[in-house]
Nucleic acid binder design. Structure first.
Lengths: 212, 212
DNA sequence: CATAAAATCCTGTTTTTAGGGGATTGTTTT
DNA sequence: AAAACAATCCCCTAAAAACAGGATTTTATG
């Protein structure tokens, strides 16, 4: 049985690289590619692959969200996350959203083929380096914050003081301070600098700074 | 005349992708690849290509520094920067260090070939999108900070206070405060939160937090 | 060698955060 | 219905950062 593979990545060179790596594999059929989430979903309405290799960073939607949506609509498709970074937070989220594996972009042909064959069997595949990270950073879990805390976090990142945030949200400064304290506690950091850094790294803070 | 091309990238899939894209180009000869700066430099001691496609993010040394070193030792080699991100700061630094062009990883075969042929002529090649960014973000210029300011910035991002930084760097707390003031001024922000956010977004702060 | 830039240090004041305690009202969730 | 959570508010203290306005020494660089 031939395994039908589809890829979603916004880097043409990566698509081409994977295609090239797979072209001599008789047991794998290349179905094509999409360069964003929208065209991926459009493609899936026509045909369904067995495995999707999905980049984490897409222009229109994060791979994490796309993964969730695809698994909801087509539960039988196996998804392998794909990215350059060995970021435990992303890997965890992908797996939580139904992904069957995670592959780094410096993987070899052998790893790639093995990953596809593993997830088809219903098993989980993780790159060697990824597994190490998952074990190593087991303690550094992504904090669960509330909606209000998120609002406050974003305003802190925008450079507002507690007082300015209070005015903006029509609440007392002491309330803002409490939210801030909770954020520091949940992120297990002791000041704003570390808080913003962590939040930026796990991509809680959007890149484009909205003008007020 | 055949153009000899070499590539330095730590992502196997990108190497394979470029190789695949170039394999039918008769005017281009594939010399091979390196997956880090060290093996690139080792290779150059044996043979010299005409063009090097160089990733910005390498495991052992930044592409920006490697670019400088290569151009110093082998001025006749043309270097094209390669990365996933359309980051004006990196592009500028690469060009300052002697690169002849900058290509995004979502470039097509045509762009890739055109880029190689352009830089061989001694001209500068920039991806279309890159050129747009260079123009678009002309106002939001990347601040030029000194080495010491960079050290302080990283320690701030690590969550250290001025006093802790002072102890670490064997300088006075007031000096750290001055560096901090200069950082705020150069980034045109008014507090630490905005500073760290901006620094994280232009990728001045490394992802993997070094353990002290 | 002269000038500019970088790195160092200082004295203040004001504002903002961090840390330690609370407490009350709703809203989920079990 | 009780427990857990979210969101709101309060007091107090100490530490840290931001703001202002200096100065000196070292290190590059034309």
């Amino acid at each position: 049985m031939v395994i039908k593979v589809f890829i979603v990545d916004d880097h043409y060179m990566v698509i081409e690289g994977i295609r090239s790596l797979l072209q001599n594999e008789k047991s794998i059929e290349w179905m094509g590619h999409a360069m964003n989430a929208a065209s991926c979903l459009a493609f899936l309405q026509q045909q369904q692959p067995d495995v999707i290799l999905m980049d984490i960073n897409l222009p229109d939607m994060s791979g994490i969200d796309l993964c969730k949506e695809v698994k909801m609509k087509y539960p039988s498709i196996h998804i392998i996350g794909l990215s350059s970074f060995n970021q435990q937070s992303f890997i965890q989220k992908m797996l939580d959203n139904g992904a069957s594996g995670y592959l780094l972009k410096n993987a070899t042909r052998e790893e790639l083929v093995y990953a596809i064959k593993t997830v088809i069997e219903g098993e989980i595949f993780l790159s060697d380096e990824v597994e190490l990270t998952v074990q190593k950073n087991e303690d550094s879990k992504v904090p669960i914050i509330t909606r209000r805390e998120m609002e406050v976090l974003l305003l802190i990142a925008d450079g507002l003081t507690n007082n300015e945030i209070a005015i903006k949200l029509f609440i007392s400064t002491t309330t803002v301070d409490t939210h801030r304290k909770n954020l520091l506690a949940k992120f297990e950091v002791k000041n704003t600098a570390s808080l913003i850094r962590m939040a930026a790294q796990i991509q809680l803070i959007p890149f484009i700074k909205p003008k007020n």
